[in-house]
């Protein structure tokens, strides 16, 4: 799952974009992780720290906040938390790379529609950056 490096690269560029080049000590970063994507926190945290340090920043702490996925059917209105364990490894990997492939492999458990919304629990984002 080394594509965490690509996501870490994106987060690092975003953090640099937000805080600029003057303040070099980052006391704390909070990263929100949508559980749908099954991101490996250890790899993502390591990669993010490495990339930021290569940009000249010092990173004291990276915290992760999990966001459980919730789906809502547009056809029947049913809202549910998907059980990711029902998928085999190949499907979990596909969703890991492109979360929207969930529309290929998952249907509303009540009406069978693939027209549902990912209400939350998708993707990776930075919710807090504390600089010294």
């Amino acid at each position: 799952m080394v594509h965490e490096w690509a996501l870490a690269d994106a987060l690092a560029r975003y953090i640099m974009h937000r805080i600029g080049g003057e303040k070099k000590i980052i006391k704390r970063i909070i990263v929100k992780l949508g559980v749908l994507q099954s991101i490996d926190k250890e790899i993502l945290g390591f990669a993010l720290k490495e990339i930021l340090e290569s940009m000249g920043y010092t990173v004291e702490k990276i915290d992760f906040e999990d966001e459980e996925p919730v789906l809502r059917c547009r056809k029947c209105g049913h809202e549910w938390k998907p059980d990711m364990s029902v998928f085999d490894d190949t499907v979990r990997e596909a969703i890991h790379f492109v979360p929207e492939t969930i529309f290929s492999y998952y249907k509303c458990p009540v009406c069978g529609s693939r027209d549902f919304d990912i209400v939350k629990g998708r993707g990776v984002d930075v919710t807090l950056i504390e600089v010294e």
């Binding site: 596909a94 492109v98 929207e100 529309f103 290929s104 990912i118």
Partner: peptide
């Protein structure tokens, strides 16, 4: 590569995400 031969119906905001 990831959706295989399965359909992948997407509303606009999900196209943007992909």
């Amino acid at each position: 590569y990831y959706s295989g031969d399965e359909p992948m119906p997407l509303r606009g905001k999900y196209v943007d995400e992909v």
